[in-house]
């Protein structure tokens, strides 16, 4: 595992990707910090972080797009499959290498609150809490985008899908707000989701009867549930969608709250997507 980790890290720094990623992140946080903290005079570094958060939409896909897509493209994945290393180790090594690259600008950012504290009173607790949450948010997004990269052979496609997925999670709370919170609307939404699940099952298994069966079963279950307990459906879909809004969880840290549920949430997302990536590679062997 350490061999793959070292190789990955080396390739990030021998190529441009790692350097550009770090420079871009530092440049943007630098600008925001200058505007908010130095020019604006706010002692809270977390405001700068909250402003800069959108750059994940561009920076993370750049970092992750080649991680697994390029292996497949260059056929080097065959080497990884043939080496006496488990796929979990391969994925972990790759993930940790990306997290290491990402940790560099975070490490630099850790000095900013200290610099600010030279010129006034800074609540270091909330600043470092925010930096931790910022780090975990980034790690969660890296895990998601790594999974996307494992689905395709093309770096470009991986990057485009990653941006789309991140944009969706970024705008998720806004989208959830657009959906009426009545029970009927939730039911309609779930039926649409059921059809989507059916389509995905159809694409993945190439077995139309099974897909139709799954769709009908799910639709029936949802409808029955709706008639049994329709109050449960009130506002359910918007709530669920808000649950997918990774970026919003960061807000409470900016307001000075150390939200443990958000930390657990990010770690869960990381674990889930690392696991899904391993499964995606495993599936590649079975196709």
């Amino acid at each position: 595992m350490s061999a793959i980790y070292r190789r990955e890290l080396r390739s990030y720094f021998c190529g441009m990707t790692g350097v550009i990623f770090i420079a871009f992140l530092l440049l943007m946080t630098g600008i925001y910090m200058t505007v908010y903290n130095l020019n604006g005079g706010y002692p809270n570094f977390e405001y700068a972080l909250s402003g800069v958060i959108f750059i994940f939409l561009i920076a993370v896909p750049v970092l992750t797009m080649r991680s697994l897509a390029e292996e497949k493209h260059a056929r080097t994945d065959q080497l990884l499959y043939a080496l006496p290393v488990s796929l979990t180790e391969v994925v972990m090594a790759k993930y940790l290498a990306m997290v290491t690259v990402y940790a560099v600008p975070i490490g630099v950012m850790c000095f900013y609150p200290l610099i600010l504290s030279l010129y006034g009173t800074v609540t270091l607790g909330s600043a470092y809490g925010s930096i931790l949450a910022f780090f975990l948010l980034g790690c969660a997004l890296i895990a998601i985008c790594m999974f996307v990269s494992s689905l395709t052979e093309s770096q470009v496609i991986a990057a485009v899908i990653s941006v789309a997925v991140l944009l969706l999670t970024y705008l998720m709370s806004g989208i959830a707000g657009l959906i009426p919170s009545t029970a009927g609307a939730s039911l309609a939404g779930f039926l649409v989701i059921t059809v989507l699940i059916g389509l995905i099952v159809n694409v993945m298994t190439k077995n139309t009867p099974v897909a139709i069966g799954v769709t009908v079963l799910l639709a029936l279950a949802v409808t029955v549930l709706y008639f049994v307990n329709s109050t449960m459906f009130e506002g359910l879909l918007p709530d669920l969608l808000t649950g997918l809004a990774l970026f919003d969880r960061f807000q409470s840290f900016i307001n000075g709250i150390f939200d443990v549920t958000a930390i657990v949430y990010y770690i869960t997302v990381i674990a889930l997507f690392v696991y899904l990536t391993v499964q995606s590679l495993e599936k590649k062997r079975w196709s």
């Binding site: 793959i4 190789r7 390739s11 056929r75 080097t76 065959q78």
Partner: peptide, 24 residues
């Protein structure tokens, strides 16, 4: 394999060291 699985951004020496390490 049919197509040698090479990391083209490495030198042969580095690449072989990597494979050696991965082989333990």
């Amino acid at each position: 394999p049919e197509l040698p699985p090479l990391y083209t951004d490495m030198t042969p020496e580095e690449y072989l060291e990597f494979v050696g390490r991965a082989k333990g």
